[in-house]
């Protein structure tokens, strides 16, 4: 319990900065939405750019509604949540070795498993807090536009979607930090992977032949457009949980076995 508390405290500042900045971005974007809101002429003018909007993960037809607008700017939700997760995951594991505090922490009467368990609990908790705050902030910010049930159902779906996607990158970050000999590079490697899969995601949206790749691109699991029109697909929730649990099991296996770098 004391390690969890310690991790929560040491990561609190970063969390507050992340969600504050992101909420601000959503707030600024919402003022732009005022232009599209109930303005069919403007929307008609955009119709030629359908492909571009698809690449961003939404459809132009929806831009007049709050949920449609948010789905178009969903890149600003998925990317920050995933980047935060990737950095949090890799750092929370690697920092003890990077800051050379491993020689302190692991000579206390704790097992490596206890330490890992505490760190994972703290990280998952903060990741969920991150997503929850962002979803609540979005609801609050768009509240002035007569929200209907469609919007709230979109937000519920987005909650699951953002949580799953960001936890995938968080657990990959943790796995790399515990496996790699060059643990210091786990953060940048996870981010590289994240950007790579995001690029692939945009390609898949435009080039239909690449459809089959969607199982290896987490951003394809819960596309914002699907979050509006249909439900969350069970297969992708299952796939996400599978990736998360295998990565986290890997963390326990690799970190326990190896020499700490001091």
């Amino acid at each position: 319990m004391n390690i969890i508390k310690r991790e929560l405290r040491s990561n609190l500042k970063a969390l507050i900065i992340w969600v504050s900045v992101l909420s601000l971005i959503i707030l600024v974007a919402s003022t732009e939405f005022a232009v599209y809101h109930d303005n069919p002429d403007l929307i008609a003018a955009f119709e030629g750019f359908e492909d571009m909007f698809a690449a961003l993960g939404g459809s132009i037809a929806n831009i007049g509604t709050p949920e449609g607008f948010l789905s178009l700017m969903s890149i600003y939700l998925y990317l920050p949540a995933s980047i935060y997760g990737a950095l949090l995951g890799s750092l929370i594991i690697s920092k003890e070795e990077k800051d050379r505090t491993a020689e302190y922490l692991f000579t206390l009467p704790v097992t490596r498993n206890q330490v890992l368990r505490s760190k994972i609990i703290a990280a998952i908790f903060y990741q969920i807090v991150f997503v929850t705050v962002i979803i609540l902030a979005s609801i609050l910010i768009f509240y002035r536009y007569d929200l209907d049930e469609n919007f709230y159902s979109f937000m519920r779906h987005m909650f699951v979607a953002l949580t799953m996607t960001s936890l995938i990158f968080m657990s990959i970050g943790m796995l790399l930090a515990s496996y790699l000999e060059q643990y210091k590079r786990s953060g940048s490697l996870t981010l590289g992977l994240l950007i790579g899969t995001y690029m692939l995601n945009m390609l898949i949206e435009v080039v239909e032949e690449l459809e089959f790749l969607k199982y290896v691109v987490p951003f394809q699991y819960f596309t914002a457009e699907n979050m509006i029109n249909s439900n969350i697909e069970f297969i992708f929730v299952f796939l996400s949980l599978l990736i998360i649990t295998s990565c986290l099991s890997g963390v326990f296996i690799f970190y326990k076995k190896r020499d700490l770098y001091i």
Partner: peptide
């Protein structure tokens, strides 16, 4: 380790 006190050669804390 409950009964061990360890003073490393180089000290690093948070």
């Amino acid at each position: 380790r409950k009964d061990i006190g360890y003073l490393p050669s180089e000290i690093f804390y948070y």
